[in-house]
Design a protein around this nucleic acid. Structure first.
Length: 592
RNA sequence: GGUCCCGUAGUGCAGUCUGGAGUGCACGCCGCCCUGUCAAGGCGGAGGUCGCGAGUUCAAAUCUCGUCGGGACCGCCA
């Protein structure tokens, strides 16, 4: 070994020992011809070395230091440093690698450096405490999850990265075949198909920390390639899958934060939409959607009288924080999201509403200040105030539209107004269950679109409505949500070919087409498929939140910026004509 | 494809609204001084295609248009 200790572990207990440390020169403080302090750094921390100033070791030089652990003289102890009671004296420095000055400081100041510069020199960025902490935390999370799965008798199985193209869902990365020019593999969006076949294969319980690839636009919580904990189980019902998946997530959370979440509440998709206006509610804060449709059952206000669903949210004390400009901005946002409009009401004491239209005569003594206050009756005003539990100074936002729009618009407004950054605690996990089997209608075919995927098992209680009222059919599908981020999703799968055929029929896929597109996947189910279901959750997202980061790039060693172009390697790049020829490919000129 | 924001020395910024010589700050870098610092301190120095290109103007980092790069979000992500 080139070293006897790490740079962050020497304490007063080591005084008198001769030690050798290896690492990078973190900083050098020169005090004269024959005295300099030199901090040596590795992933564990810093140790101060007292050296002769003639030593030529500058920032980021890689060195070993052999010296004697010595108590610092009175008054020079550094309480901010774990190793601050000691220093190395009589040092012998060996320079292993010289270093040019780094383009940015290797410390927390680099947090403010342009991310493209950090990514171009990622190997320097990784030397920083923040990145070391994040990647080591992620490693612990991976280990905790693996252990949790193994302890539940799941077996880890690797599945192919080269698989057939299945154009449904996310856009795929394609890989040209050299041996069969003009033919392509696809990189897996997920191991979905294979893991179900593992169940047919009798593996019973499978898991994998799987790399998934999707050629879709990048975001703070999305990379082209990302890692999922993927699992699948045979002979199970929904609760079995949720319980099994939960163990890994909660173990990971405990390892990362020291606190094990006590429980993960479950709510239905419908309740999530009703109360939070989204299928991934952030339940760290209130401001829930309040049902107001009945309040306006007899209303003369035209904007409300024809609406299928009227709901509101209350911003406590928001009346003074939201001036006309901000309210106009919210209204524009609501319209951009598909609402016909947004009604805002400021709860006031009427006397304060000088020159403004108020609706008064309410027993509470409160009224609304609003452009539409004159359209809201005294009864309605009183009813809104009591239903929403509003007091003076509150701001009420109301959307009246079809149910989905009302919920989604208010859900988005709720998030924009009240939602803390995702990485700020507390951590609130949530299962959302009973998703609808179909979501919306395909504009081209007029057929319903699968909410999860075409192999998702309908809720058995709704099977009789499958053909008569497909849009009301619930699915045995579920999502796990953490602080408003979708961590993962899963479902119980269809294992009965006849039921699969019924679902395909609704999607407009006949037997011939099903065989052509999914034959390799469906044929195995003719040979005895066990009932099975599974789940997958994003390890990048989980790690980011548990690390207190709001961008998954911070917990990935070599991520790509949202352009998809890696500033460090320059990829993607052009390839030789010879490589293209071998693959039977020709590049078209750029489209206009 | 869309909306909004950003681009000035190796790094982080000010200057842009209200046009007047690359004007400045901090860190870093180089040199010198310095024996107890720990983001050491002092003195000196080097370092610039103000992203790029047009336009307006006597004059553009500053105004206009275009373009490139980056970020957040929408679309998209079964």
């Amino acid at each position: 070994m080139m070293r006897t200790h790490h740079c962050g572990e020497l304490t007063a207990e080591n005084i008198g020992q001769q030690v050798t440390l290896a690492g990078w020169v973190n900083r050098r403080r020169q005090h004269g011809e024959h005295l300099a302090f030199l901090d040596i750094r590795d992933y564990t921390g810093l140790t101060q070395c007292v050296v002769d100033n003639t030593v030529d070791a500058r920032s980021e030089y890689v060195i070993t230091v052999t010296g004697t652990v010595t108590a610092r003289v009175e008054g020079t102890v550094n309480r901010d440093l774990p190793t601050g009671e000691i220093e190395l004296q009589d040092c012998i420095i060996e320079v292993l690698s010289e270093a040019e000055p780094p383009p940015f400081p290797i410390d927390e100041r680099a947090d403010k450096v342009d991310e493209m510069v950090r990514l171009k020199y990622r190997y320097l960025d990784l030397r920083r405490e923040r990145m070391q902490r994040n990647l080591r935390l992620r490693s612990k999370i991976n280990a905790a999850i693996r252990s949790a799965m193994a302890n539940q008798d799941f077996i880890e199985v690797e599945t192919p990265m080269l698989m057939p193209s299945t154009p449904e869902g996310a856009r795929e990365f394609l890989v040209p075949s050299r041996q069969r020019p003009g033919n392509f593999y696809a990189l897996p969006q997920s191991p979905q198909l294979y893991k179900q076949l593992l169940m047919v294969g009798g593996l019973d319980r499978y898991y994998q920390i799987a790399r998934c690839l999707r050629d879709e636009d990048l975001r703070a919580d999305r990379q082209y390639e990302f890692m999922q904990l993927d699992l699948e189980m045979s002979f199970v019902e929904v609760d079995d899958v949720l319980s099994a998946a939960e163990v890994g997530v909660l173990d990971a959370a405990e390892v990362a934060t020291g606190v094990r979440p006590t429980e993960v509440p479950r709510i239905t998709w419908h309740e999530a939409m009703e109360r939070f206006g989204t299928d991934k509610p952030d339940i760290r804060f209130g401001m829930e959607l309040v049902e107001l449709t009945e309040v306006f059952a007899q209303t003369g206000f035209k904007a409300f009288s024809s609406a299928g669903s009227i709901k509101g949210i209350k911003v406590d004390g928001g009346a003074s924080q939201y001036g006309r400009n901000k309210l106009d901005g919210l209204t524009d946002e609501a319209k951009a999201m598909g609402a016909k409009g947004l009604v805002w009401l400021k709860v006031i004491v009427p006397e304060a509403a000088e020159g403004e239209q108020g609706s008064d005569g309410v027993a509470s003594g409160l009224a609304f200040q609003s452009p539409v206050a004159k359209f809201i009756s005294a009864d309605e005003t009183a009813s809104i105030l009591s239903t929403m539990d509003a007091t003076e100074g509150d701001l009420i936002l109301i959307v009246a539209d079809e149910w989905t729009t009302t919920c989604e618009v208010l859900g988005e407004l709720r998030n924009r107004i009240g939602r803390p950054p995702v990485h700020e605690g507390p951590y609130k996990y949530l299962w959302v269950v009973d998703f609808p089997l179909f979501v919306g209608v395909d504009a081209a075919t007029g057929r319903p679109k699968p909410g999860h995927h075409a192999f998702c098992h309908p809720h058995p209680d709704d099977l009789d409505k499958l053909e008569s009222d497909p849009m009301s059919v619930r699915a045995w599908a579920y999502d796990l949500v953490l602080n408003g981020w979708e961590l993962g999703s899963g479902s119980i799968r269809i294992h009965d070919p006849l039921l699969q055929r019924r679902v395909f029929a609704l999607l407009g896929i006949d037997d011939e087409e099903a065989d052509r597109r999914f034959g390799f996947f469906l044929d195995p189910f003719k040979f005895g498929a066990p009932p099975h279901g599974g789940f997958a959750y994003g390890i990048d997202r989980l790690s980011a939140i548990l690390a207190g980061e709001e961008n998954i790039r911070e917990i990935i060693a070599f991520p790509k910026p949202s352009s998809g172009v890696d500033p460090m390697t320059g990829s993607p790049g052009e390839v030789d004509d010879g490589q293209l020829e071998e693959l039977g490919l020709r590049v078209l000129p750029p489209a206009e």
